[in-house]
Amino acid sequence: MSAIAHTQADGVPGPPPTGPWRRRWPRWAPAAAALWAVLYAAVEVTWAASGTTVPWKAHSAYAPAVQLFLAAVALLGGGACLATTRTLRRPLRAVVVTALTATLAVCVVGMNGLPVYFVTLATLSGIESATGLSQVLLNTAGAALLFLVTLSYRRRLRGDCPRCGWPHDGAGDGPLVPPPVSRAPGRIRVAVYLLMCGLLPWAGAKSIWSLGGDALGVSGQDWQRATNAHASGPSKALASAGIDVTVLAAVVGVFLLLGLLYRWGQVFPRWTPFLSGRRVPRLLPLIPAWLTGIPLTMYGALLTVAAPLVAVGVLPEIRPSPPFTSSSGITWMVAFGGFAFTGLGAALLVAARSYAARTRPSCAEAGKGGRPPLTVILQMTGCLSSFR
């Protein structure tokens, strides 16, 4: 195991690094996560005590008992974050990692409505619920902080640099060295393309309706009348041109996918004014990919499972609502939505994982003191073949 100046053998940080604050995130992330936990718990208890309605899906709200449970889970996670800064015996380390992982999972589930709120805000359609959006944002912030704490703690337990994850001597607050620009391996590209095919039935049906055609027993006029009833100005303008706003959002997701797969997602291409040739900030595509891919995959998987259960009678029949005129039509659309959201979400996660591995930098110190050079590190991660 490598001996790192700022990491002790028991996973506790040693002398603090002195670099800029953004380079010292492994040290301040536990305290930030603990503050988030206190804030989250206070908000949940306040909502539960006052009977505030906090929706988690259409026509359904969190029960007060659930809100109190979420407050307790947040405090448990916050305590675990603070415990990562202490000297712990091996059994207690496992307890801390388990608490962090469980709290992170709860927050990830609470992010489920993030893409929906993003689309409504981007199209100026208004916010259906301020408390619902606040709940989603609180869970998203918590998931991000808990992920950082869990990642840095597990790296310290292995004796690696908590910032870059590679074993090296010296403080981990110096410059980062990015790896060579590369595209995703062929198997990753094929997997992403196959997952993207799940968009075709859903996008096809919506495009037919937007262009005035009929599909699944729904006429184009009825669809446009129903969707324009509560649509914003930009949404109506796009619909008048035969473009469904949700399909356009999916196209944006596909554009993000291509950037994650190919070299132009790491270095700005020639057609980007003022930025051509510059390195793309690593988190610029990764953050939207994670924040969109995780909720879409969870929501799509739920729809994918529910639709066939409804079709065979295990779940109650879905009552049609305008513009749908039959239960079978709306059930098929639920299935199409499940394929689309699961496919796009999983494709984003697969592409983001590949992008994160291929763009993972190392501290400048990693190449000193007899440590493995960058090429050896890339061989260890299985990424070197994609550079050839």
Rank of each mutant, 00 (worst) to 15 (best):
T120D: 14
R86F: 13
H6D: 10
L348A: 04
A249P: 11
A99E: 07
V43L: 15
L260K: 02
D169W: 13
A63D: 15
A340F: 15
M1W: 09
L75W: 02
F274R: 05
R156E: 13
S125A: 09
W209T: 12
L275K: 14
L151E: 13
F336H: 13
E128N: 14
Y355H: 15
L35K: 00
A366E: 06
L216M: 10
A306H: 03
P115V: 01
F147T: 15
L146W: 01
E128P: 08
P185T: 10
L138S: 01
P295K: 15
W264T: 07
G259T: 05
A184C: 08
Y62W: 15
G132V: 11
A352P: 01
V12P: 00
G329I: 01
A143W: 00
Q67L: 15
V119P: 01
A241C: 14
A203H: 01
A122N: 06
V254H: 03
A61K: 00
T53K: 12
L283C: 10
R187S: 13
V254L: 06
T103C: 08
R89M: 08
L374W: 02
T46P: 05
H230W: 00
A80L: 01
G19T: 03
L68Q: 05
G11T: 03
A241I: 11
P30H: 01
T123V: 05
A335F: 15
A71F: 08
